[in-house]
Design a protein around this nucleic acid. Sequence first.
DNA 1: CGGAATCCATGTGGATACTG
DNA 2: CAGTATCCACATGGATTCCG
Lengths: 128, 128
Amino acid sequence: MVTTEQAAAAPGGDPYQSDCATRRILDRIGDRWTVLVIGVLGEGDARFSELRRRIEGVSQKMLTQTLRGLERDGLVRRTVHPQVPVRVDYALTDAGTTLLEPLRALQQWSIAHLGDVSASQEAYDRSK
Amino acid sequence: MVTTEQAAAAPGGDPYQSDCATRRILDRIGDRWTVLVIGVLGEGDARFSELRRRIEGVSQKMLTQTLRGLERDGLVRRTVHPQVPVRVDYALTDAGTTLLEPLRALQQWSIAHLGDVSASQEAYDRSK
DNA sequence: CGGAATCCATGTGGATACTG
DNA sequence: CAGTATCCACATGGATTCCG
């Protein structure tokens, strides 16, 4: 396995080397929740509990973990309002916002092709 | 702005319900290898061993599993040439090809923002 | 060559309980 | 409200072996 240090050769070049840009980002957004969180925040800032309510099935632990990751990546900004009880707002940063577009493209593809994919799956399974 | 409105049951509509289109596709392409396989095949048909060589780090098991999934989804076509030894070619279907574009958009984003993301990560970790 | 099958280590993530 | 901290079940995926 290659260390994170020496991405020297091809900064974003060959997408098939284990430490390429694509792979690193994929590892970040490829999980179950990240894309969904970004999607919700793309509609506007939201509090922790709002996110949890809107993203069906996410556990508190995973939501926290996902948000921390996004914050670390500089894609989401976390703002604590020192009230009682505490209020925390999450918002996309500029960088996070730029991710919205390619993500929406993927979403559009999903909606457009889900039918075909499902049909293909059924056909495949029947032929087995 | 945040909608408190409860979105009506929309099959591909609300991306945050557990069985929406986005989520289903994400479950498919969200894994470690699917996107990379599609990427390679986007450059042209390839044999099993070619794919394995070009995608650094993929195991035989995972490559097979990934290809089976893509075939089942109708995104990849598998062609067996009855020679000795056997020769198997993989190619993107039309549907698979249409996925290439949104995927490339994501890849472009990755390349463009990896630097920022890495910097943000380091800053975040230092501040901890 | 292109797999299938098995075994097993590890990571992911859910449930639960507790806290500031 | 917005977390943190554990414990643990299960899925992911690597290594290995065998086969047409």
